[in-house]
Design a protein around this nucleic acid. Sequence first.
DNA 1: ACCACGAATGTAACCGGTTACATTATAAAG
DNA 2: CTTTATAATGTAACCGGTTACATTCGTGGT
Lengths: 333, 333
Amino acid sequence: MTVTIRDVSKKSGYSVATVSRVINDSDLVTEETKKKVGQVIEELGFVPNNTARGLSTRKSFAIGMIVPNISNPFFGELIKGAEEAAGEKGFNIIILNSSYNNEKTIKDIMILKSRNVDGIIMSSADFDESIYNTLVENNIPFVLTGPVSSNHEINYVSIDNLEGAKKATEHLVKLGHKRIGYMAGDYASYLNKLRLQGYSETLKANNIKTDENLIFQENVEKNIIKLINMKPSERPTAIFTFNDYMALEYMEKLEEKGIKIPEDIAVVGFDNIKMASYYSIGLTTVDNRQEEFGRKSFELLLNIIKDKNEETHQIITKPKLIIRKTCGAKSKN
Amino acid sequence: MTVTIRDVSKKSGYSVATVSRVINDSDLVTEETKKKVGQVIEELGFVPNNTARGLSTRKSFAIGMIVPNISNPFFGELIKGAEEAAGEKGFNIIILNSSYNNEKTIKDIMILKSRNVDGIIMSSADFDESIYNTLVENNIPFVLTGPVSSNHEINYVSIDNLEGAKKATEHLVKLGHKRIGYMAGDYASYLNKLRLQGYSETLKANNIKTDENLIFQENVEKNIIKLINMKPSERPTAIFTFNDYMALEYMEKLEEKGIKIPEDIAVVGFDNIKMASYYSIGLTTVDNRQEEFGRKSFELLLNIIKDKNEETHQIITKPKLIIRKTCGAKSKN
DNA sequence: ACCACGAATGTAACCGGTTACATTATAAAG
DNA sequence: CTTTATAATGTAACCGGTTACATTCGTGGT
């Protein structure tokens, strides 16, 4: 049915080994035979079977990618960057949705192993010991995206979250705010810890003493009620929120209550999701370019696969503040 | 290094054939041997090598998915649905980003062929003859998502766009509007044709004569200028826009000019993207559930792969109108 | 007791590539 | 004109599963 390397061998008069060498552009064959064999390949429309190739080389030219939620454009962009970089090197991406579930993540890793992927790009909200062990025991090259709290030496690429939080908070300080709040959601991620830390350190560096009443770490509902019930004189005049998604929620609720942004409360987010730039929202935020991270993740992974050397790499990019309207500073748009 | 079926065979005392049968849960083996062999598999941590399996069965339990833009949540949801459905059946998804480029799409199809995918889910904005031929010549089972203008008999799943456009327009008619506009972008897609048709037919059915001046088919910039420059008495009192994305753009521009929504102009979109429901936007729109379509696409594809029968299937789902604020009707939220 | 038959298991070829090793051809060296 | 090194090609085993076909074994019919 399908044309195989032996068909090409027969028709061209060369052995399968030589044909294989031609396919792989080995320098063991003459230019002339390359041409002749190439001709036959063309004629027969031969396409090498990747599965067979993978079986003998134990490589698949495929990498796995496990993300918490494909439909979230934040991860969509990550995937896009990785897919593009992979394609350029002849790799393909097998995508798996972990749904923020670590048990599923481990199953996914095993699935990817059975598919002989050459490596995995992981984007886990909660990279724990069990995931780490699974990857290491199965000897699978991997890189993480996002900040990593693990005390193992791990390859990852991430934005500098501490620095980003500092820039965001500092911007509010420079605008003259004294009562600056930090608003997060209810889950105690490492990411949250870093961003809170950046916030706190910035206040300290500017001789503003931290006020526990201005740090909101319960769920969004409770936080908003607490905020709304504060006397205007006690209320923060500016808030740095954990991420854009939450910032949008807070903003919606605040405006419902007649609290104006940025006049009454200035807002700065984190991530620069597409919506932040959109439709009269104009959220000031910290740019967190996922597409670029996707690309870098793949490139790092490829290095690891090739080199197999022991040293780990951490690629940490510098964050950039995007000033729009919600912080009250003059927009640069 | 890795544990193979022969290791299991050796340790369990059974032949590789029997082990293979156990793996595949064949009813040719006793429950007892299944148990014994299963035990050994457990002990050794054996995971069957999918590549080897694929080579002999000529199946890969992988399907390819080609979408125009992964980072667009519209497609993200589609992928998510397909990935989930696929996972339940032991299939994985290889994702490829076509960037709306048909030449790349054809290359992608060949890449997927060399990987022996069992089928392809295509989401092309412009499914043309060359793509069709590539798929058919290479004998690759496929299903399309979205409406298909091709005159070939093709498997696809789509929303009923004509019906959706009718519902949207009808809603505006029922709200008492007489001057209802249709606003699209500048590209003449089949999709646009369908939605425009739904709009026109609804007007006719309600004895409102179509006014060419209320149909905006140039690019967004030009359309908006034309709209703004109309006298209020000539202006449409309501518009049905090609999709939510455009609707948001129009709304932004209109509000900038002081034209209130829905008081001055009511707006209905199409697709129900996440943003439509969000942050005081409240866009009335036609639900176009991509996640469900992703799931259905996979299920349909699986049927095609299994049955190999000749008849084609078209799965067309009924659209649902989501009433929010921009149409001026009382919101049901 | 003997044969037939079906259920359970085993043997080995096969899927389509890669590659270690063997072989042949070619040219340079003695 | 051998000998020898080297470049080009060929042979066949191998990757790790699946499965057609062969074999073994137990049971019921006569």
